[in-house]
Nucleic acid binder design. Sequence first.
DNA 1: CTGAAAGCGCTAACAC
DNA 2: GTGTTAGCGCTTTCAG
Lengths: 349, 349
Amino acid sequence: MANIADVAKRARVSTATVSAVVNERGTVESGTRRRVLDAIQKLNYQPNLYAANLARGKTRALGLVLSDIMNPFFGEIALAIRQEAQARRYEVLLASTQFSKAELVSAIRRMIGMRVAGVAIMSTEMDPRVLEMLCAHRMPAVFEDVGTVSETVSNIRIDYEGGIFKAVKYLFDLGHRRILFVRSYPDTRQDESAFLSICMRTQAFQKAMQQFKPGGLEAAIVTGSGPGPKAGQQAMQKALGHVDFTAVIAIADPVALGVFRSLWAHGIAIPRDVSLVGFDNSYLCEYLYPSLTSVNIPRQRLGQMVVDCLVRNVENQEPGRELELETELIVRESTAPPRPARNRRNARL
Amino acid sequence: MANIADVAKRARVSTATVSAVVNERGTVESGTRRRVLDAIQKLNYQPNLYAANLARGKTRALGLVLSDIMNPFFGEIALAIRQEAQARRYEVLLASTQFSKAELVSAIRRMIGMRVAGVAIMSTEMDPRVLEMLCAHRMPAVFEDVGTVSETVSNIRIDYEGGIFKAVKYLFDLGHRRILFVRSYPDTRQDESAFLSICMRTQAFQKAMQQFKPGGLEAAIVTGSGPGPKAGQQAMQKALGHVDFTAVIAIADPVALGVFRSLWAHGIAIPRDVSLVGFDNSYLCEYLYPSLTSVNIPRQRLGQMVVDCLVRNVENQEPGRELELETELIVRESTAPPRPARNRRNARL
DNA sequence: CTGAAAGCGCTAACAC
DNA sequence: GTGTTAGCGCTTTCAG
């Protein structure tokens, strides 16, 4: 495969000149430039990026670690971040862990090996080794929720509390008094604490419930395991017939999907018999029938924050920051006032 | 950041030995090995992958180009391919083009720059420059549908015809006589021929219709633009009130989602008033209500084929091959016999 | 079993 | 404006 020397020879210039042309650096006389471009064309020259990055000693790349490439919400985040990164002339290396800690650690290892300028860890699962590694290498990083800001690490706190509070309040105001919270547990081989955002969303729910308890609100929590939809279904298997409720809040949209399906399968109509609220507001929500009320996490904003933190840290040596990302409730068709009890099918079997 | 020389010095060995330990190559005495491992630990050494790959002169990486990271179906494919690749100790570099030809070309450029061993192009859009570049570099490649096998390029022909035929036949046998085919057009800035799989699926539909024409089957085709669901909705806007039909086949599941939504919004019940068939059988199908009948493309099998072609080509110099991937109809709840005409709401407004 | 040293292909001073 | 050249950090013969 042709290399820079071949091009240089053919264009009768030095490798430095070729490099200058390729990287649009310095000033090259237009005639020389032409010759180089011609040679590149003829030889189908494509710079070896390993050599280039090695020589440069730094990269304009950001790492992005996600939990589940099959969840459209993660896809949307990846897109938002990539867009933001491209605007600043960074590329992004994507890794999907599928909720495995081992994959997480090896993804980070690979990113460090690739000498990315910074890394964003937007995964559900977490592992202490990650922080260790990043610190040891003084690698700029931004996390979601994992709250220990330092010189090199930033944290974006998503306002789960606010979002869930709004959801609970909305349901309460509609007249609901018994709300079921459905959680998922992506990988049973792992400790529950591994999935921080699950814990945080759960706590947020509990806290919100406390506030409405005096108003007569009752809550239950049920957990299913496996990938989102499966977890939602499984959780509903457990809940139906044992727990009485008029509304469900799912911890994430894919989980809501499972709940959705499960309710219909039992002849429970949404929102007539039960109201359903999702979390993340992925684009799917709009297309379900009934469309799904969901707590929105502004992806574009998240993308900006992530890239901004990283770039500031890298380019201006600014220290890590703690940022908060607001959430909002997007009301759609899946929520409505509960039916009067006497008209309601008994949710207990 | 610590490099191999630092480790070597600390362990009082040569860099060659460190390399041997890191790559588990050759035999290193266990005492020496320990010292090296210790040093690595102490210094938090992570090999620079640019240097490593540059020195090695080849990589164990495969490139994968997809059109839309937000479509779960692509995610499933990515996962299948990654799994298959990992089994053979290759990693995969992922790129998502979002249906843009320019992105496609630059993704390929990047893969070549990264000297991947081979590349799989599973995107909807195509560009002649891609083939040029790949040929010029004698880069092993596998395409989906783009049928020009050569020494280095393989092609996996997905049996759209068979799949769509099965769908049409199934609907016909149920009693449907007027079927609407809904297509999407992801990016109107681009020529229609750019989206090969769309053309192929459309042709497959037309061909199937021909065969049932004598039986009294009538067909219509309508096209929407934009990302899947949007296209589906838009297409239905056009069709409703102008075309009469009792069943819809959507060109892809996300499109079906838009159709789904649009039909409900007009008070048309699935499958009571209209039957709906999707394409790709993404995991969502199962979770809609009613669950979606869809043509399955076996992802796992696709992943195997892709990686197998590439690896054989790379490691055994086997020439490119033409493979066929079978499809099947997965029947779920969204399809049923049509209602007798006299009971049916008139689909014309 | 281990070390010395020659690259891998490119970039970035620095000299002309 | 252009060329020379010393690295970048690692792998891999080839001796020892």
